[in-house]
Structures are given as C-alpha cells and as structure tokens.
Amino acid sequence: MLLIACPYCGLRPEIEFSYGGEAHIARAADPRGVDDATWTAFLYSRSNARGDYAERWRHTHGCGRFFNAVRNTNSDEFVASYKIGEQRP
C-alpha cells in the first residue's frame, strides 16, 4: 500500500485517499470561448506517461482536501507532494 504525504496531514496510508488523475490540466477560463477540440483535449487527452508523473489526490478519509503529487509511475515512489495552485517542484 502506498504511503502518501498529504501536505496538510503528513504521511497517511493509501486507503484514506481518492485518486484525482493527471495534475495541471486546466479548465478553460472562458468555457464558451474555446472550440470542441480544446474541450475534448481537456476532458480526455492525458499524457499517461512512464516516469515522474504529476497527479492529484484527495484525502477523502482525512482532511478532505485535494493536493498534487509527483510520483514515478515505474517504481511508484513519490518524489514530492504540494498544494493545489503551487508550481510543480
């Protein structure tokens, strides 16, 4: 089981969290001002990469907050965790 470092609560077991998919995929500030291709990319297109991967987690059975993390998808080792709105380290 992964041990995940919630920026608010510290290291907690994986079962306290929900996965939030890839991080830094920004919703259009003006939803009606972008075309279908942009919307499709926002909703569905993902890097799904091997290697260090920026993702979101939510501490559903803890503080309830979303946060970001960088984890290596080959080894599952966490590199960093950081708050929503912060830059990827």
Binding site: M1, L2, E14, Y19, E55
Partner: peptide, 13 residues
C-alpha cells in the same frame, strides 16, 4: 489499483 502505474504490481488491500 487506484492510480496510474507501470509497475505490474498492486497493493494487498
């Protein structure tokens, strides 16, 4: 398992 991974391994729970 709940997260994206290429490890071909998951957790016991």
């Amino acid at each position: 398992d709940a997260y994206i991974s290429y490890s071909q391994r998951g957790a016991l729970h």
